[in-house]
Simulated assay, not measured.
Amino acid sequence: MTWITLKTTGNFWEAELMQQMLAAHEIPARVIRQGVPVHFGCAAPAALQVRLQDQWTALLLLSPLEERDEQIT
């Protein structure tokens, strides 16, 4: 199984939240820590990884919603 890094973040908890969102849609994901915190309570960088075949679905699920242009006529 091939895993790719979908997103990197400076906060482990943010990556874990994205992992939970993908799990709700039955997309396997994993969070990889990318270092150690400088001191206790400091956030450590992390990467969110998904399987190669789930890349585009995961990107769509995690992308921001497009804002609708509401025109007053």
Results as ranks from 00 to 15, higher is better:
50 V>E: 01
70 E>P: 05
13 W>F: 15
37 P>K: 11
13 W>T: 14
47 A>R: 03
15 A>P: 04
67 E>A: 15
7 K>N: 05
45 P>W: 05
64 P>E: 13
4 I>A: 03
31 V>Q: 02
1 M>F: 12
47 A>M: 01
46 A>T: 03
3 W>S: 03
69 D>S: 15
42 C>L: 03
21 M>W: 09
10 G>L: 08
32 I>T: 07
73 T>W: 06
40 F>H: 12
43 A>V: 03
26 E>M: 08
44 A>S: 04
56 W>K: 05
64 P>Q: 11
20 Q>S: 07
25 H>G: 01
27 I>W: 02
70 E>S: 13
28 P>G: 09
36 V>M: 00
62 L>S: 01
48 L>M: 06
7 K>M: 06
14 E>R: 14
13 W>N: 14
31 V>R: 03
41 G>H: 04
42 C>K: 13
72 I>R: 05
27 I>E: 00
57 T>Y: 10
49 Q>I: 10
7 K>R: 14
71 Q>K: 10
39 H>E: 13
9 T>A: 08
52 L>I: 06
59 L>Y: 07
30 R>E: 08
53 Q>I: 10
48 L>S: 06
40 F>A: 12
16 E>A: 11
9 T>D: 08
5 T>K: 09
48 L>C: 03
40 F>P: 02
18 M>T: 02
40 F>S: 12
26 E>G: 04
46 A>C: 02
1 M>S: 11
28 P>L: 12
53 Q>V: 13
14 E>H: 13
37 P>N: 07
67 E>N: 15
70 E>H: 14
24 A>S: 08
21 M>D: 12
19 Q>R: 15
30 R>M: 12
28 P>E: 14
4 I>V: 14
58 A>V: 01
35 G>R: 01
61 L>H: 01
42 C>R: 13
33 R>W: 00
67 E>V: 15
26 E>F: 11
57 T>R: 15
2 T>F: 05
30 R>H: 06
53 Q>W: 09
68 R>C: 11
45 P>A: 03
55 Q>T: 13
16 E>V: 05
7 K>P: 00
1 M>H: 10
61 L>P: 01
13 W>C: 11
68 R>Y: 13
7 K>T: 07
67 E>T: 15
42 C>V: 13
57 T>W: 10
4 I>C: 07
